[in-house]
Simulated assay, not measured.
Amino acid sequence: MTTPHIPPRIPPTAGGQRIVSISGAPYDGHPAPHMLESLASIGATHVEPAYIVGYTEPFDESAFTEARAVEYARALADAGIGCHAMSSHIDLGRPDALEVFQGRMRFAARIGAKVINTNAAARVNEVRFFQHIEPLAKLAEELDLVIGLENPGDGSDNLLNVAADGPALLARIGHERVGLNYDAGNTISHRPGVPTAADALAAMALCLHTHIKDVRRTPEGYFFTALGEGEIGCAEILHGLRTSPSSAAVSLSIEIPMRLHRGANAQPSRAAFRVPLADIEARLKAALGFVHHHLNLQQESVA
């Protein structure tokens, strides 16, 4: 008999409003203080730091020390930017995942995050995943975090491939500190035959966070576009977030990895050079306008 899933404990929104963050992914190659100053200049209020192998410059666990956390928290305060969510994707079923992800969770909490997003696990790592997720959920309680499990985009077989995998997975975990962070921009390359917007909306009742990005599919692969210019159905997803009572408290991040595309085999490929700040700011300012328009929120004008 399947145990009913316990709804995730959703972190409070800012002033009663849904929190809209911007992922650090488009700033790949730019130092964090420059990224935060740039975000402040376009009117962003929150950043989602991105520590994702293959999406960003290489890093190791020394990026998550207490000293680094203090440094990052200071940079956030100096720029006047909040941190509600952090992406730190690993396979939670790999042998070292418990130690590695605990360190990243402590870092996330130290810089103010309430959500930490990660992949679940490759299906072959299922046994270790369920061994690890219980102590990770307990640590999330201690740190006042929630863990968002995200569907991948690389075409592999994961415990969370599409929305239909979510209910049984979360029921088996059975902990209020674990929910979904659904990303329709991953679905298009991970399971190309699945309708992206419909699958995202099917997952939303189990989400505590979601990523918004748009993708254009070509014979050469998958390319990330301005919101509304790809095939994902971002407007439809945002409309669903706005109108569905079950997703009223779901926070979101705009994630546009401008230095990255996926090949026809769905594997990520980074450009040799970082994207100029002016190009990033133009793309993200337009994305903020798109999101706020479709969520029916009022965006302050930025000079």
Rank of each mutant, 00 (worst) to 15 (best):
G80T: 12
A44Q: 01
D96S: 15
P33A: 05
N119M: 11
P257F: 02
N151K: 06
T187M: 15
G193P: 04
R242I: 01
H190D: 14
D144P: 10
L295H: 10
G233N: 11
T56A: 06
D144N: 15
I232E: 08
T3L: 14
E141K: 01
P95N: 12
L170W: 05
R216Q: 13
V178G: 00
T196Y: 09
S301H: 11
S38L: 01
M86L: 15
R94E: 14
E231L: 15
L159I: 11
G24H: 05
Q299M: 14
E99H: 10
H34T: 12
A266L: 00
G263Y: 01
S247E: 05
L92W: 03
L227D: 04
L159Y: 11
L136Y: 02
R191C: 15
A44L: 03
L252R: 07
A235L: 08
R274W: 12
H261D: 06
V115T: 07
H261T: 03
N186R: 06
A63I: 05
M258V: 01
E236P: 00
P95F: 07
L143S: 03
T13S: 13
V127F: 07
A69P: 03
S247I: 04
D154I: 13
E99M: 07
V124N: 10
S253T: 07
V250G: 01
R216Y: 13
V70A: 14
G174P: 04
N125I: 02
L136D: 03
L36K: 06
E141N: 02
R172F: 10
P192D: 14
G93E: 09
D60V: 11
P58T: 00
L149W: 13
S88Q: 03
N186T: 09
A122G: 04
L208P: 01
L36A: 06
R262K: 15
H211E: 04
G15V: 07
D157M: 15
E37D: 10
R191W: 08
Q17G: 04
A235W: 01
D28F: 07
V162A: 05
I90Y: 05
L227Y: 07
V302F: 12
L201S: 02
E176D: 15
Q299D: 10
R259E: 00
R274C: 11
D214W: 04
I22R: 09
N296W: 00
L277H: 00
A266F: 03
G54S: 05
A109G: 12
I256A: 06
I133E: 03
M86H: 07
L169E: 13
R274K: 12
V20R: 02
S156H: 10
R18E: 10
M35K: 04
L208Y: 02
S301V: 12
C83Q: 08
E281C: 15
P31C: 11
H34A: 12
Y222W: 14
G29W: 13
R172Q: 15
L139P: 04
A249H: 03
S88D: 08
H239M: 06
L139M: 13
Q267N: 01
V53S: 11
A266C: 06
T218A: 04
N181M: 08
V47W: 00
A67P: 08
H292F: 13
S251T: 13
N119T: 08
L145G: 01
T225I: 09
A235H: 05
S253D: 02
T65Y: 03
I147R: 03
M35P: 03
G240I: 03
I212L: 15
F101W: 07
G93W: 04
S87R: 02
R128M: 08
Y72L: 10
S189M: 11
